[in-house]
Design a protein around this nucleic acid. Sequence first.
DNA 1: CGTACGCGGGAAAGCGCTTACCGGATTCCC
DNA 2: GGGAATCCGGTAAGCGCTTTCCCGCGTACG
Lengths: 343, 343
Amino acid sequence: MATLADVARRAGVSPATASRIINGSPKPVTEALRARVLAAVEELQYVPNAHAQQLARNHRSAVGVIVHDVSDPYFSEITRGLQRVATEHGRLVIICNTYRDPEKELEYVELLRANQAAAIILAGSGYHDEEFTRTLDAKLRVYQATGGHVAVIGRHEHSGHAVIPANEAGGQLIGAELFRLGHTRIGVVAGPRHLTTTSDRLNGLRRAARQHGRKLSARQIVYADFDRSGGASATATLLDTQPDVTAIVALNDSMAIGALAVLRERGIDVPGRISVTGFDDMPIARDVTPALTTVRLPLADMGARAMTLALQPPEPLNTPHIEHVDAELIRRESTAPPPPDPR
Amino acid sequence: MATLADVARRAGVSPATASRIINGSPKPVTEALRARVLAAVEELQYVPNAHAQQLARNHRSAVGVIVHDVSDPYFSEITRGLQRVATEHGRLVIICNTYRDPEKELEYVELLRANQAAAIILAGSGYHDEEFTRTLDAKLRVYQATGGHVAVIGRHEHSGHAVIPANEAGGQLIGAELFRLGHTRIGVVAGPRHLTTTSDRLNGLRRAARQHGRKLSARQIVYADFDRSGGASATATLLDTQPDVTAIVALNDSMAIGALAVLRERGIDVPGRISVTGFDDMPIARDVTPALTTVRLPLADMGARAMTLALQPPEPLNTPHIEHVDAELIRRESTAPPPPDPR
DNA sequence: CGTACGCGGGAAAGCGCTTACCGGATTCCC
DNA sequence: GGGAATCCGGTAAGCGCTTTCCCGCGTACG
């Protein structure tokens, strides 16, 4: 691997001069030398060692993003927004997948700190786990104390900047819509119990119920993984234990798609016999049949805003900024009034 | 930011000893000192500077992955497989999105080289561009010459290891299936012309046609972006210029989904009036209606294999290994025999 | 009791780069 | 024409860590 010294030697200049030319330092350098150095760079296919540069310059350049899983469309949309902004700022982004393991989340914060990340973005739901939350927060504070910026998406328990989607309001929108259509027996296909996203969305639903003089009982809610197969298994359970539901609220679109798959298998008409709703409005929500009624969250935009917050925090510095983002109900074909009561 | 020297000072030992304890070096150290150092680490919340370590140790630890776009399910599946293997090997993976800009691909190779990546994985289609291909190859060779490993997925023009999906055979499978069903007027919704993936899949289709004594004319093929909206617009064009097609072959699932959307809008029955096929078998292919007949590529597995190849190249070293992966026809509900000829 | 040896710990030399500082050669102005 | 100002380029001191080499001590042995 060619080093700067090699280039300098070949061009017959000092490493200092070579460095100045290669990095376009403000210090003026004769044209002749510049040409010689550039030629040497070309001949040796020299690329500066980024680690050595980072060490010598002592200023951070990369940014880290911690997500549950980039292959989940929810996160890949967010990531797309993040990346766009990071690239505009000339930042390299390091993506870390926790696969929903809180332990890994902690590890990755250390790893990013070790790698001198300029900022850490935490995307995805928090966990209902006091101890974990405290530990994570402590680590983040240490990171911030040494000049790191942190922004979180979709959780609120940390000291950094935050972009908070209206999960609760979204849940309420869904609930209101279903009650308005006349549904009374609703089943909920929920994500993991310990995720704050799950409980926030559920709370919105509960509030809508209360406003319509009803309430959600525990029997109506089935918890499972926040993905297609979780949605499928929870729906199967629900159909077996609460066979008379007329609407199934899935707490994200992936689960809703799992629900649709099970309903299709069992030959249950959607929305004729059972209405189904999702949450997030991922791109595919339009393409399943029937197209999903869901709540839109501007995911890519949320990612972009979080990155912006992390990269150029608004005044006053060191005061966490919280940006709320609205949810919007998207009516499509998977919802309709309930069928006339067979009883 | 606490440094190793700070820790050493606090524990009353030399930096050398501190380093040995923290990294669990083979050199034995008294238990008392170990405890003191570990305590200091804890108190100072010390995390070693990864760049300094990398510089001092002088051996590569990260691996880089260059993809078109992680938010595209095709790549996120591949990435999932890659990550799994990388994590098993304790490697940090740096994901780079080119957004299909060849220029960026070149830049990222440099960037990864600068960051001392142990391996570079190039995923995604190559480009039909002689000069670009040569330039890229030259860069990769330089990287390999300095001990870097490279593996490519889905292209064949480079000197590293390769995992090659049976794009052509897959195209042939689709073609054969359609001809077998009795289709004669087929339209192709293709990806960008300059991508090798497009031409490979098309060639398979052409071969199937030839075997059935037919051929594909240029008028039957519409090129567009390799995503949903590309699929939609190409399908619209096709329906306008070739209104009598009885089957639409989309060259990937995203495009097929776009095609289905347009057909649905126009009230055209699938597969009653027109059959539609995809390619890749992304998870959603089962969930659209009608479920897509497509060709399955084991994407996550391909990613895993590429990473394995890059991380522990099989003997003999320095000889590019090529692994071919099979394509499999998945019959679902989007294909059927053509309707009786109206003429 | 003296020497050899093993063992735990420290001093110091780098890894590849940046950058403050310094110094020799021009140029400039009075 | 001489001293100051001005340029350009080089020298060297780090950035934070690892690791080789060496040294002093305690033990075992002759």
